[in-house]
């Protein structure tokens, strides 16, 4: 069983952390959550691992959402540490503001739409998204269309507010 989990780890860990990072914006938290996912996989080896691992990860993020205050603190710490040779501060600031706006727009989406979008960004096809989220395959196109439209609309609205304020 450990071999199987090792194989799963090698295959999916990077992808899982990347998806969790997109969702949380916190690398430490993403890796903690990924570790938790594999711990659960060890306890209950999944039959269909990819959808299972990502479904558990998305559920964990949702359950862990109450810790957003802590996440904010961690993000500040990450920003304060920064890379040794960082890009120019204005570039970093602009990028961070854009990322914050995108993340806020993503938070505005319905959980199902958001999850579908994140899974698509990780290379899932419609069938895999359907299996992960427990939806009909025929509904995925509509779900993604709505998620993309709402994400862009929410982002544009935030950007408009940001520019109006500055």
């Amino acid at each position: 069983m450990t071999d199987q989990i090792t194989q799963l780890f090698q295959t999916y860990h990077g992808s899982l952390v990347r998806m969790l990072f997109r969702r949380t914006g916190d690398r430490d938290r993403a890796e903690d959550l990924a570790q938790e996912v594999f711990a659960r996989a060890l306890a209950t080896p999944p039959d269909n691992p990819r959808p299972w691992l990502f479904a558990v990860a998305l559920n964990l993020v949702r359950d862990d959402g109450r810790r957003s205050v802590r996440q904010g603190r961690r993000l500040q710490l990450l920003t304060a540490e920064g890379p040794v040779s960082a890009p120019p501060p204005d570039q970093v600031l602009d990028h961070e503001e854009q990322v914050a706006a995108v993340r806020a727009a993503l938070d505005d989406l319905a959980p199902r739409d958001r999850d579908a979008l994140l899974l698509k960004a990780e290379g899932f096809n419609y069938e895999e998204i359907a299996a992960t989220l427990g939806l009909a395959k025929g509904a995925i196109g509509t779900t993604l269309a709505r998620a993309r439209r709402r994400l862009v609309e929410a982002y544009r609205a935030r950007e408009k507010d940001r520019h109006a304020a500055s």
């Binding site: 990072f21 914006g25 990450l78 570039q91 854009q98 990322v99 995108v102 960004a121």
Partner: peptide, 11 residues
Amino acid sequence: LVGLLEPGLGA
């Protein structure tokens, strides 16, 4: 937009 969420600047 989703691409902006990937680890990069700052992380």
